[in-house]
Simulated assay, not measured.
Amino acid sequence: MRIFLVRHGMDEEGYRGGWSQRGLIEQGIIQSERLGDYLYHHSEQYKINTVISSDLPRAVQTTKELEKRLDIKAHYLKDWREMNNGDLAGMPNKEAEVKYAGVYFNTLGMDIPFPGGESPRNFYNRICTSFRDLGQSIEEQQVESNVLLVTHGGVINILYYLLGHQNWTNKSEFHSIGNTSIHTVEKGVDGWKFSGMNMISHLG
Score class of each variant (00 low, 15 high):
166 Q>R: 15
50 T>A: 07
93 N>H: 13
122 N>E: 13
200 I>Q: 04
31 Q>A: 14
41 H>M: 03
27 Q>F: 11
160 Y>S: 04
118 E>L: 08
74 A>T: 01
56 L>F: 07
73 K>N: 08
203 L>Q: 02
117 G>M: 05
132 R>V: 05
107 T>E: 05
90 G>H: 10
23 G>V: 02
117 G>A: 01
167 N>E: 14
44 E>L: 03
166 Q>L: 12
130 S>V: 04
204 G>P: 06
170 N>S: 15
200 I>N: 07
172 S>N: 07
66 L>I: 07
173 E>S: 12
134 L>S: 00
125 N>K: 12
71 D>A: 14
133 D>A: 03
199 M>H: 12
149 L>F: 01
153 G>E: 09
197 M>N: 08
151 T>I: 11
4 F>P: 05
70 L>C: 05
166 Q>I: 13
133 D>G: 02
64 K>N: 03
182 I>K: 03
28 G>E: 15
8 H>F: 10
10 M>Y: 10
165 H>F: 14
90 G>L: 09
20 S>G: 11
172 S>P: 14
145 S>N: 09
36 G>L: 04
40 Y>E: 06
45 Q>E: 14
12 E>R: 15
139 E>D: 00
68 K>S: 00
34 R>H: 14
193 K>G: 00
26 E>L: 11
34 R>G: 14
76 Y>W: 06
53 S>V: 05
202 H>P: 06
79 D>V: 05
